[in-house]
Design a protein around this nucleic acid. Sequence first.
DNA 1: TGGCAAAACCCATCTTCATGCGATTTATTT
DNA 2: AAATAAATCGCATGAAGATGGGTTTTGCCA
Lengths: 208, 208
Amino acid sequence: MSIKILVFEDNDLLRESLSSLVAQQTGFALAGAYPNVLQVKSQINQHQPDVVLMDIDMPGKTGIEAVREIRSFNTSLPVIMLTVFDDNIHVLEAIKAGASGYLLKKHISSKLFDAITEVLDGGAPMSPSIARMVIGSMQRPSENPYQLTTREREILNVLSTGNSYKMIAAQFNISIDTVRTHIKKIYEKLQVHSQTEAVSKAINEKLV
Amino acid sequence: MSIKILVFEDNDLLRESLSSLVAQQTGFALAGAYPNVLQVKSQINQHQPDVVLMDIDMPGKTGIEAVREIRSFNTSLPVIMLTVFDDNIHVLEAIKAGASGYLLKKHISSKLFDAITEVLDGGAPMSPSIARMVIGSMQRPSENPYQLTTREREILNVLSTGNSYKMIAAQFNISIDTVRTHIKKIYEKLQVHSQTEAVSKAINEKLV
DNA sequence: TGGCAAAACCCATCTTCATGCGATTTATTT
DNA sequence: AAATAAATCGCATGAAGATGGGTTTTGCCA
């Protein structure tokens, strides 16, 4: 039984070339190819593909929104994103939305079927620069973007796990007024005005 | 000029085999091979490697701690982690600590030099199952672990960006007392007692 | 149609936080 | 020796949050 591929790509030329590439490959079959994702749910239900290839930038509704929609009714169908740029700000968004792999278009001819095989095998095929972006997004910034002092970082850390001023004071064995002073300074540097904002910024920007 | 590789691996057999593998490969040179990471800083300063291969589990000080230490004085030196298990709970920790790539030991013989080349090229080589773990860790859980209602999720969302009760009430066009009620319910379900705890849990567990 | 969950609203009380102002001590650097 | 940054402590006040009671309305579904 062939592996059924469903393609979403607005560029006519690329869609055609993807289609014939898939159609000609032994062991693979083209389930369908569409220039937009407006009917993505019914098309998937209709064709029952094993893998979806999804362009990231499409007019009307983007590939990212489409992945999000797919994940709302199917959590396991592998979706491989296709994009021209590796500095596309949407790359991480697509992954968070539920994409299973990520291929730069310049790698399609050489890596497409490797990627499909890998994704069906439980992997997450990515072009090298994409993988680097992904890993980079999980790591702490190497600088100290807000110029927090050591003590301030320590306090932001425990604050971010839900400790009250009182608990922080006890933990560090300092007075509650000192805690207040440090937090005041942290707010200034992060440009926020509440614990919640500070914690949100700290976690999202990986300061803690 | 050959690419200089520095190896940290406590298993004598594997360290020897890695060493001879590297030494025999044209274009690569073994800068050194050590069974522990106790002197990692001075050894790196001494050998000036282009790439570090680091076992994840070593007695005394783990590879993860070593990566963290390396990153404290060198933010760009590529470090490729080596591990036997792909379900190792430490895999994500190592990446957060600053690892640049991640190879399962069963893939070493076939992929080591590809990985080294890729990492020097700005990529992030990972065995497929590792890549899948990484991507999985960035995605929302598909279930609804705390049984939050739609409204509760919406409110947790805006709460997590630092909005006050008042702002939330205005945004959703509901009374501030209703906001209170929803947040009470959210706290019950998440088992927390403050905004900060709720936001921390929400972001870290990717509920928002 | 009776029961139930979700969403909305109200009130009162105590706790915690945000912020402004001022001050001392310690270590480091010039 | 003076200057500076970091860390500490104190006080006061208004704003915001946490919690424990309630009630009503709506839509679903058994």
